[in-house]
Design a protein around this nucleic acid. Structure first.
Length: 590
RNA sequence: GGAGCUGUGGUGUAGCGGUUAACAUGCCGGCCUGUCACGCCGGAGAUCGAGGGUUCAAAUCCCUUCAGCUUCGCCA
């Protein structure tokens, strides 16, 4: 086999005159009868190679027989193209190779879709032939970007004293959080391993072990329903540090992000990142991961409209709820009545009982509700909302939680319709002071908002039993353009505090010992104060690549039903395998 | 578990009660020495996701089902 001398895009005007060999796939072939052009594609780009019977008749005849996606090696002299045939649309458009020898290394069937960018085919087909899909230049670029990001992470953290350590994939099932993927044990009939949802406890134990700074590009597994930005197995940058506080972690992460976006996108991002507390995020944006690329803030008008004659408002407030509103600037004239009704229907889908609205015009208010409002209430409202002619004000009235939820969604929907979300903007935000616990109505107990190893804020520790819901956590999320890209916390490192935490989420000491005895034991052998954070690499790369789906940045992703169309996993296994694992599949109902 | 959208030659679409199931591209053959979305001529290629029903007649209407996608719940 001829040995490759260059990737296609390593060849340009400066290499003209050299004898070169390139290897790749036939992208297109243009046969002019007496002259054949082939665009040869490798992972770097494409190069036009020319077959002329006067240069080499054998190569010319061979070129007549090649087809799309044949794998060939082409040797010849790199020439400058005649001026009038320069192609400015490709990187190598000023040169071409006059082939005097070609080897066909392999043939190819006609692929089921075009190997080119921007194709419009069923994603199922792309996944079934993922190796062909990944051959497309845009997918090659994404995977190279992903590599670059991971490489920069490793370099940056190594330079900052972090050690890359591995933690088990077969581990113990943990009671809280997402559903575990389970792996039956052959040698322990009836017992199961769980695949990690995150290396959380192990990385904390690495801190106990004294490694001080740890990171891992870790695969994590959660057996929950999929979304465009959620896969059952995904990759996290997991890190943990000893002897640090929030400021240390934020500073380190900000510098790392700046470096990643510089390397990955050539973008300069400003540090430090702004910070908002969870409470402020919920009040102003109705979300704990607000997109701050646009305004459309939520405004509380409970004091103005809470005792109005409009029963929906007064009723909500009487039940302990709130009335809040968003001024959708300019939407009063932009949106038709039909579009406003559409928004109302959407609000109901998100859990609202309805959506009151007011359109402000030059000399009147159009609204189904103004007839219930007194003049001073209307004036107070318009004032508070800074309403002008052309505006649309939409309302949410219900429990605080529901109003945040619904108006938070409506805010995003409005931004979508007004096209306020600009892809080129990069808006980072730290969200801090999350609640430590929240009440779970189904389980009738408090559950950890972040996880059970998160430290309460020091000033809230004394009152955590008295007022669990008001206790704040030393937890933080990093949000980019409304997407949560990372989250972490300072951890509990004292046995007594950890025990209090377990009991707050309703675990008995026996439960705690059985599930986490090893961790509590470890806390008694000199555990340093520590904390960390984890980032969704897939989401991060997705945002950098400007993609809408996490599947586009994972080489071999799963479909919405967590299946792989290429390998057809998951699959049935033999009875013998089941027997070895002491498992029995429940009979299907006839 | 719920809601919505989609499923027609290899691919992408049109057709939405009676068509020879149309178009583009790809594929195959022929011609062509400067193309790069090459061009020109010719050809092959579809039991319309699956099953059932309504009808004289179903790609088209109805029901069921499967798959994919989006989304709510869920995802510490």
């Amino acid at each position: 086999m001829m040995k490759r001398t260059h990737y296609t895009t390593q060849l340009g005007v400066e290499q003209a005159g050299q004898d070169v060999v390139i290897c790749g796939w036939v992208d297109t072939r243009r046969d002019h009868g007496g002259l054949i052009f082939v665009d040869l594609r490798d992972r770097s780009g494409i190069m036009q190679v020319v077959f002329n019977p006067e240069i080499n008749l054998d190569a010319f005849h061979l070129a007549e027989s090649v087809r799309g996606e044949y794998v060939v090696a082409a040797a010849g002299k790199l020439r400058l193209r005649p001026d009038e045939t320069i192609n400015p649309n490709i990187q190598t458009g000023q040169v071409e190779i006059y082939v005097d020898k070609m080897e066909v290394l392999n043939s190819s069937k006609t692929p089921p879709f075009y190997i080119e960018d921007g194709i419009n085919v069923d994603e199922l087909l792309r996944l079934k032939y993922r190796y062909l899909d990944l051959r497309r230049p845009e997918m090659q670029k994404i995977m190279m970007l992903r590599h670059r990001v991971v490489k920069e992470i490793r370099d940056y953290l190594d330079e900052n004293g972090f050690m890359d350590l591995e933690t088990p994939i077969l581990m113990k099932s943990s009671p809280e959080g997402a559903r575990d993927y389970l792996v039956p044990s052959r040698v322990h009939p009836g017992s199961f391993y769980a695949l990690p949802q995150s290396p959380q406890i192990f990385k904390q134990l690495l801190m106990v072990a004294g490694f001080d700074r740890y990171f891992q590009i870790a695969r994590c597994f959660r057996d929950e329903d999929l979304r465009a930005d959620r896969q059952p197995e995904f990759t996290q940058l997991d890190m943990e540090m000893s002897f640090v506080d929030e400021e240390d972690i934020f500073g380190l992460v900000e510098e790392m992000m700046a470096r990643l976006f510089q390397a990955g996108m050539g973008r300069i991002i400003n540090t430090p990142f702004p910070r908002l507390t969870y409470a402020e995020c919920m009040a102003r944006f109705g979300s704990d991961k607000p997109d701050l690329r646009f305004g459309l803030e939520i405004v509380d008008v409970t004091d103005i409209l809470g005792n109005s004659d409009f029963k929906v408002f007064s009723g909500a407030v009487a039940a302990g709820g709130v009335v809040r509103a968003i001024n959708a600037k300019g939407c009063g004239e932009k949106f038709s009545r039909r579009e406003i009704d559409d928004l109302g229907r959407l609000a109901i889908e998100y859990g609202a009982r309805g959506m009151a609205w007011i359109v402000v015009t030059e000399n009147e208010l159009k609204s189904p509700i103004t007839k219930f409002l007194k003049e001073d209430q209307i004036k107070g409202l318009l004032d508070r909302m800074q309403a002008e002619a052309g505006d649309l004000i939409i309302f949410g009235a219900d429990s605080t939680e529901m109003v945040c939820r619904v108006l938070g969604f409506m805010r995003l929907e409005l931004a979508r319709r007004l096209e306020l979300r600009h892809d080129e903007e990069l808006n980072f935000l730290w969200v801090t002071d999350f609640p430590l616990l929240e009440w779970d109505d189904e389980e009738k107990r408090y559950v950890a908002v972040h996880h059970m190893f998160t430290s309460p804020k020091l000033e809230d520790i004394d009152a955590m039993e008295a007022e669990p819901a008001k206790t704040r956590a030393r937890a933080y999320d990093l949000v980019l353009n409304g997407t949560e890209v990372g989250g972490g916390s300072l951890r509990i490192y004292q046995r007594s505090l950890q025990e209090r935490m377990f009991s707050l989420v309703g675990m008995t000491m026996e439960d705690a010992r059985e599930k986490f005895g090893y961790l509590m034991d470890a806390f008694e052998y000199g555990t340093p104060p520590h904390g960390g954070i984890a980032f969704g690499i897939d989401r991060l790369v997705m945002l950098m690549a400007g993609r809408d789906s996490i599947r586009d940045v994972i080489a071999f992703p799963k479909t919405q039903s967590a299946a792989c169309p290429m390998t057809e996993a998951p699959s049935k296994v033999s009875l013998r395998q089941l027997r070895e694992l002491s498992l029995k599949i429940r009979e299907e109902k006839a």
